[in-house]
Computed example of a mutant assay.
Amino acid sequence: MFNRKSKSTIDSLIGASTNIEGDVHFKGGLRIDGHIKGNVIAEAGISSILVISEQAVIDGEVRAGHVVVNGVINGPVISTELIELQSKARISGDVHYKALEMMNGALVSGKLAHDQIAEPVLKLAASN
Results as ranks from 00 to 15, higher is better:
42 A>V: 11
47 S>W: 09
126 A>E: 13
66 H>G: 01
27 K>E: 14
124 L>S: 12
37 K>R: 08
113 A>I: 10
34 G>F: 10
16 A>N: 07
35 H>F: 13
97 Y>F: 11
89 A>M: 03
89 A>F: 01
59 D>N: 12
50 L>W: 10
69 V>C: 10
85 L>M: 10
15 G>C: 11
106 A>I: 12
79 S>K: 08
6 S>W: 03
78 I>L: 10
45 G>D: 15
82 L>Y: 04
114 H>C: 01
106 A>Y: 07
38 G>E: 07
73 I>C: 06
123 K>V: 15
32 I>K: 05
72 V>M: 10
13 L>T: 02
60 G>K: 06
121 V>P: 00
12 S>L: 09
29 G>R: 07
61 E>M: 08
15 G>I: 06
86 Q>Y: 04
125 A>D: 07
108 V>F: 08
6 S>K: 13
52 I>M: 04
91 I>Q: 03
49 I>L: 13
111 K>V: 01
99 A>G: 03
71 G>F: 00
7 K>M: 13
122 L>H: 00
89 A>E: 02
70 N>G: 06
117 I>A: 05
20 I>G: 01
18 T>L: 13
41 I>W: 11
74 N>V: 02
93 G>R: 05
109 S>G: 05
3 N>G: 14
111 K>A: 13
49 I>F: 09
126 A>F: 04
37 K>G: 01
22 G>K: 12
